[in-house]
Amino acid sequence: MSILKDIFTAMRGGASEAGEAIVDANAIRILEQEVRDAESAIAKAKQSLTRLKSSEIKLKREINSLNTDYDDYEAKAIEALNMGEEALAEEVAGRLEEIATERDEKSAEHSTLESEVNGINKLIRSREKIIQKNKRELEKVKTIKEVQKATTSISDNVAATSSSQHRVSKALDRVKAKQQNWRDNMEAGEWMDTQEQGDDLDARLKQSGLGGSAGSKKSSILEKLKAKQKVG
């Protein structure tokens, strides 16, 4: 089941009207139920896996011990043959046969268990896949729901003003005017900075005795006035 297809169908059916649930609530319940079922199946599988695994370990240990026994008796049989104890060697051979039979039975049992463990692991993986897939599908539904909620809360605001013509153009003009204003302020700030630096330069020049000073200007004006007075 694909939620996107559900959403598409719902939209074609005109179910995207505000407030109307876009995805069938039943579909969501099914997805959630599937997640829960898969989760409980995994929990059960993990329990039986633990049991199987412990039997498998036990069998493996028994097989190992049988192998050791076999090697032991085999060495003893060879020793008996070397000593010429044919009858004893034959008896040991009989024992070896018993051990081999038991070992083969347990080995067969072990490989059955092993394939069961693999099967359960495979089952767990496939269930986990279902869970992940369904969770992603549910996430899509929730995303649609949240986007709907986020849009609706603004749409109400938009609706309140959307009756005016050229709403977007006007808003854009206001934003751009503000941005221009901000840039102008930045520029003004930069201009002030350069001015201040300039003043600083003037001050330093003055301090070094360079550049005209207000005092000297005043005195030169006074000179001119005195000159005029003489003429007059």
Partner: peptide, 14 residues
């Protein structure tokens, strides 16, 4: 407008 799901933070501008 910002909203959250279980895994995402959504930002919507109408």
């Amino acid at each position: 407008h910002l909203a959250q799901t279980d895994t995402q933070l959504l930002a919507v501008t109408p």
